[in-house]
Amino acid sequence: MKKYILIPIILILAACTNKEKMATEPCSFEVTVKKTTGTKVWLDIVPANDAAYYAFGMVDEGLPYYDMDVHQLAEASLEAMHELYTRYSANRTNVGSFLDFYCYREAREIKETHLLSDWNYRMLLIQVNPKNLEMIGEPVIIDFHTGPVDFDPDFTIDFKCDGSRLILIPSNLEADYYWDFEETAVINEEYNSPEMFFYDLVDMNEDYEFMPNMLDRGVCEYDLALDRGIEEGVRHTIVATGYKNGEINTFYIKQDFIFEEGLVRLVSSD
């Protein structure tokens, strides 16, 4: 009978003492650049101590800071994060901590996307003291070079309407392209720009390895009358790009439309 009393007490104690473990001593990190493509890099990070917090800074060769002393660069990166965090949290309640915003703990695979192709980058892994949020030890330098992208600057898409159908006519009928749409207000309020909205979509599709299934080639017709999610009378923005060898390889193409009373009509983008 006694054990029935003891076990719950142990469980309660475990719940109460499950405090976050925080490393305030310098820790070593094993960093492996797993793969680079034209615009992406995958890194494996394994800290020697799982309680160590770390953040990332990154510069490319086109920026004046690229050759800056790495310690100073790491300090400046961390300072910029603090500045952003302070600005965000001013006059807000219930805000997550700086560590939650920018820092990681334990082993992670990090993927950076939408980089410039055939370009030098320098990433800095910065260990952060969770007590005072300052840098601990020396930053880890991760240099890498992105590969080429077969860019097609001439690719465009003409948009036409036929009743409830939206028709996409690409300039190159043999090229693969990806497109999607969202309410214009959502894109503006959540993503700030159609490009950022598109970045997120492409990232997610690539993560799922669905991109090959999501691409279209040649003329594509989409019947909005069959789309349960479309809200009538609301302005939507289509974003499209060409896609080749796992990379976006054209400029962004945008078109706004409104679907109302069973008919789709194009509207000029602002």
Partner: peptide, 14 residues
């Protein structure tokens, strides 16, 4: 991964 950088408090543990 998708929400990092937004206002999220992550509480992951055993």
């Amino acid at each position: 991964k998708y929400f990092k950088g937004w206002d999220i408090t992550f509480d992951f543990d055993h």
